[in-house]
Simulated scan of single mutants.
Amino acid sequence: METLGAPGAGIAIALENLFPPLPSEVILPLAGFTASKGNMTLFDAVLWTTLGSVIGALVLYGVGALLGRERVILIASKLPLINISDIEKTEAWFARHGKKTVFFGRMIPIFRSLISIPAGVERMPISIFTILTLAGSLIWNTAFIMAGYALGENYHLIEQYMGIVSKAVLGIVLLAIVIFIWVRLMDRRKGKHHAR
């Protein structure tokens, strides 16, 4: 960031969208800290990181749009424990809650990146997707940049606390997957039992 300044922070956040293991919870406070040292302005830090967020999200939206509904259904039909009805339910849910999901998803670790793909698959109007991504990312980025700016050299404390949140989100996702697999296996076992 000291070499490239605010555009470097924007590039880092665009890459974070594409490769979620790069945590924005580290990059954004570091941008705030860098701004506190006078190497960039707060405005530039927020502007460039938000631009990076939108560009990264649009790339993943494009991946979802290229993949398309037919390919998703084809892939799902070959996966064990997945039914086509699961895809249909997901589509119906996204049709009802897609806008809120895209907006609030920008503020949830892990989902920040992933939510762009179903938005592309479902062909959410790109203008709406961009506006919601811009708004959600602006809130998230500004909060973390300001925290890094305020904490100065202690900006790394944010990563420690957000690391706990990220692990909790990951734990909930893994638990949901385990429950889904267990329920689906029980349903199949009941189906075989009734077939007899």
Rank of each mutant, 00 (worst) to 15 (best):
E153W: 04
L81C: 01
M146C: 11
K190D: 12
I87W: 06
S137G: 15
I117Y: 08
I126L: 06
N83P: 04
F94L: 04
A147N: 08
Y155L: 04
W140S: 07
E153G: 15
G163Q: 02
L170K: 11
V183Y: 07
K99I: 01
V178C: 05
G152R: 09
W140I: 04
K99S: 11
I128D: 04
G105T: 13
Y161S: 09
R112E: 00
A168L: 09
A150L: 15
R112N: 01
I131H: 07
M146D: 03
E153C: 10
F111T: 12
I177L: 09
I164L: 06
K190M: 11
Y161Q: 08
P125H: 03
M124L: 13
D86P: 01
I139C: 08
E122G: 15
R189A: 15
L132W: 00
R189D: 02
N83M: 14
L185F: 15
Y149V: 03
P109M: 10
K190V: 13
I131L: 08
I117F: 07
G148C: 01
T142R: 01
H97R: 14
W182L: 13
K89W: 01
L170E: 06
I87D: 02
T130V: 09
R188D: 11
I179L: 07
I108M: 12
I139A: 12
G105V: 08
H156M: 13
A95S: 14
V169I: 10
M124W: 01
I128Y: 10
R112D: 00
L174W: 08
I131Y: 03
E153I: 05
V165D: 09
A119W: 02
A176I: 14
I126F: 07
A150V: 10
M146N: 10
I108Y: 03
G105E: 02
F103Q: 02
E91C: 05
I128H: 12
A150I: 11
A176Y: 15
A147K: 03
M107Y: 01
S137L: 12
A95M: 02
N141G: 03
I177K: 05
G148K: 03
